[in-house]
Design a binder for these strands. Structure first.
Lengths: 222, 222
DNA sequence: AAAAAAAATTAAAATATTTTAAGAAATCAG
DNA sequence: CTGATTTCTTAAAATATTTTAATTTTTTTT
């Protein structure tokens, strides 16, 4: 009979952010180490359970400009980024690409609605640089939750963070000017400005590349 | 020993959306019926567990213009709207109110970050009309999760939906014009246009009331 | 390393949105 | 019900942002 973690316990783990050191997942399984450490940063997960994760995920490397997912297809996997950088975008009625998210190391990426409901995806996911991901299919995803139940708390936290982060992102998008949104991006994810082409950043901020250029010029001369 | 629902099971419940009829929660406890039905629309919850919910929530009625929460205070409760309409807004650096969300019947509302971390809230929550809510404090919230574990699945779904819904809302805000966002609101939440003053709607759409007026005029004459 | 392609910058003209101001319509308080 | 207040609309002027187009810089390909 397993003991269920109370909400309180999981929150403690969440905020204290205890980290366990792994010794048995090494060498060829290096990419799993990244995922396991990320999970253990958020919940308690025995090294034994951790070592079982290897059975659920496969690894994949994609080159710059290659796609992990194209809108219209059914998203068969959820992806964890071990190394690299991806962009998520939609194509609107006018045929224009709109970048809505950038994923880097330790981010989960996917079209979750498509993955769950087996509906055609709305998003494109493309590599901005050579990227290594771990992926899990739907069958193993379900198995994961029933066979390693602690994991449910980890994803609970992931979804909760996603919901909270996006809530404040919406607030910002409404109340900030494009210049303020750019300043905020510089503060929160400075590495993106090095890794992501400016035209994608502009689209993410909801402005044209030309206008982003003007903003950058204005900032640098003040 | 309780049986844990697998991810698969809870998803089935989610999408099939089975509904159970309650007969024992009636009369003076009518407001709980709304919550219980909402929960049972998403997960399986025995009528016995359902009847215990009464112990966790209190009810409160607030009048038009009254506040449930003000930024700066610590949010001690999460709220479920039984009847009425609330707005969530932030005040930006220029002192301007920015509405980011409207809650109506069956919506959960609160500053969840503040509630969890006991930090000062960033949001104001104010009634747009006379509103009846059920509220739960942090201690009972934790107790709820450990004593009625099925509920965790319900909130898992709530967070997941919030994360997904907000994701697509961000995508829209970037790729739609104000006019398209207004059209989308008409489609998705037509009742809000009757219940919420236009100046709040304008703020929610990220435009001035004057410009919303122009959009409405343009739409009505085409 | 050179040629070709893609991305970033600059500036001017065009368009979208806000601001200001005033009047009309709707709602509120006594 | 009536006056007072708030909300909504309209229009003109001001500002922000996009579009277009040309040039420079950077990246990719050969």
């Amino acid at each position: 009979m397993r003991k269920s973690l109370s909400s309180f316990q999981f929150l403690e783990t969440f905020f204290i952010g205890s980290r366990f050191v792994l010794s048995d997942i090494e060498g060829e399984h290096g990419m799993y180490k990244t995922l396991i450490e990320h999970i253990q940063n958020h919940i308690k997960l025995s090294d034994q359970s951790a070592s079982r994760l290897v059975d659920y995920f496969e690894s994949k490397e994609i080159n710059k400009k290659e796609y992990l997912l194209k809108a219209g297809a059914i998203s068969r996997f959820e992806y964890f980024i071990v190394r690299g950088c991806l962009r998520v975008f939609v194509i609107d009625a006018k045929g224009v690409e709109n970048n809505i998210r950038f994923g880097t190391e330790n981010w989960w990426i996917g079209d979750f609605t498509s993955f769950l409901k087996k509906e055609p995806a709305s998003y494109f996911i493309q590599a901005i640089e050579k990227t290594e991901v771990l992926l899990i299919n739907r069958i193993k995803w379900d198995r994961l939750f029933s066979e390693i139940p602690e994991i449910a708390f980890y994803f609970h936290i992931m979804f909760q963070n996603a919901a909270l982060g996006q809530q404040s992102k919406i607030a910002q998008h409404i109340s900030y000017t494009p210049e303020q949104r750019y300043q905020d991006l510089i503060e929160k994810r400075p590495e993106l400005l090095q890794r992501v082409p400016q035209k994608y950043i502009a689209s993410y901020l909801g402005i044209t590349p030309e206008f982003l250029s003007m903003i950058r010029k204005k900032i640098s001369t003040s």
